[in-house]
Write a protein that binds this DNA or RNA. Structure first.
Length: 115
DNA sequence: GGCGTGACTATAC
DNA sequence: GGTATAGCCACGC
């Protein structure tokens, strides 16, 4: 532990709503570390399974998983996503439908907020 | 300290 | 749709 950046990143990942996904860059941004998407990936790899981090809710900016399709990790992530109701459009997640800011969007885009 | 590498991203062609 | 390039930065050699 000890590293505050790593803590922030993990805290953000822990807050990802069940049934939604978020990109590395978005996590870094919300953790107060804009542009450090790679650091997020590093933290995730280091954390591994033990910490109980919902790593499967983290995908790349374009909706694809960070692993090569067909790899073991890929299948595992896909399986967990499907188990949470996150469908994959081919090899990628539909971010418009399952993106994390969906909750926030529903507020920002609600008819009340239009004027 | 330089250099390659990587669970990344945005931009440009 | 794809490839190239440039930022980004922790780590190991």
């Amino acid at each position: 532990m000890s590293n505050p950046d790593q803590q922030s990143i993990q805290a953000v990942i822990l807050r990802i709503s069940r049934g939604s996904v978020t990109s590395y860059g978005e996590i870094a941004h919300r953790a107060g570390l804009p542009g450090r998407a790679r650091l997020v990936g590093r933290v995730l790899r280091e954390a591994g399974e033990g910490v109980g981090l919902p790593w499967h809710r983290v995908v790349r900016a374009d909706g694809r998983l960070a692993f090569p399709p067909g790899s073991k990790a890929f299948r595992e992530q896909k399986r967990r996503l499907l188990a949470e109701g996150v469908a994959l459009s081919g090899v990628r997640v539909n971010l418009v439908q399952f993106g994390w800011q969906r909750d926030l969007d529903s507020e920002l885009w609600s008819p009340d907020a239009w004027n």
